[in-house]
Computed example of a mutant assay.
Amino acid sequence: MDIRSRALENGRPTLRIRDLTVDFPKRNGSFRAVDGVSLDVWPGEIVGVIGESGSGKTMTALSTLRMLPKRAVVSGSIELGQRRILDLSPADMRKLRGDRLSFIPQDAMRALNPTMRVGRQVGEPLVLHRNLSFKTAVSRAVDLLRAVHVREPERRVEDYPHGFSGGMQQRAMIAMGLALEPELIISDEPTTALDVTVQAQVLKLLKEIRDREATSILFITHDLGVVAELCDWVYVMYRGQIVEQGSVERLFTEPRDDYTKMLLASTPTLFPREAAI
């Protein structure tokens, strides 16, 4: 029995989105970036949202984080546990974001502050949300960097981000996201800028975190190979809507929507296409 089947028997999802729409006003009306999206992420589950650029997957993630541009008009329901995200005040949302809800962005180099040592950045959530001193937080950052397999963390906490490779920067972002043991991590294509070897290491690390911490992960990507390697359940998005969902195994062996079949057909494979689909 998979994670979702077990969870459905006795519990509620970590993240529950229902009928989410995101509109952007234009001169002649509005543009709908997300159109009636509903999805669940269950405890300990890694859920992939896949689709081409502009399909609405990142807008769905940013809606959950309440990080959309101010002009965006959002409706629907987003619940993290029993908290109704769209009803929270900005102050309450700031408390939630980074505490029970963490974000790992695509470009770690841009996300990290180039003027602040890595240890202070990784430990900063502990200062903001747990009222620890920076000295204590940096000490905790050593343990967090060790947990994501950064070598010699006692020394590396004193480095600036430019002293880290791309893979190590992404590990630092993951360590920062884990600092407060969140219920949900939202990860927006965190391996896109990494080479294949480092990408595999980061995906292995995310699986390890899920297994060790029972953390739920919402993983945004356009890469079916990453989905096959990492995810338990997948939602396929096209033009702002979810066109198909299912377990990874079912999606790859029995795709039902024409768009999903097209995505699979466009993915390089070492085997004849008839055997791969």
Rank of each mutant, 00 (worst) to 15 (best):
I3V: 15
S5W: 10
R12G: 03
F24G: 06
K26Q: 15
R27Q: 07
N28S: 14
V34T: 05
G44N: 03
G48M: 04
G51R: 08
E52Y: 03
S53Y: 04
T64K: 02
T64R: 04
L65N: 00
R66H: 01
M67A: 14
K70N: 12
R71D: 12
V73I: 09
S75F: 11
E79R: 15
G81H: 02
L86G: 01
L88D: 12
A91T: 15
G98A: 09
G98R: 05
R100V: 04
F103Q: 05
D107Y: 12
D107E: 12
D107A: 11
A108L: 11
R117W: 06
V118I: 10
G119M: 06
Q121L: 02
V122Y: 10
E124P: 00
V127S: 11
H129C: 12
R130N: 15
N131C: 05
F134M: 15
R140A: 10
R146A: 15
R146N: 13
E152P: 04
S165K: 08
G167W: 11
A175G: 08
G177A: 04
L180E: 10
E183Q: 15
E189N: 11
T191R: 12
K204T: 13
L205F: 05
E208G: 05
I209H: 07
I220P: 11
L224T: 06
V227E: 01
A228P: 01
L230Y: 02
C231T: 09
Y235S: 02
Y235L: 06
V236D: 11
V236I: 13
Y238M: 01
R239H: 09
G240I: 00
Q241R: 15
E249P: 00
E249L: 08
L251F: 09
D257P: 00
T260G: 06
M262N: 01
F271L: 15
R273A: 14
I277E: 14
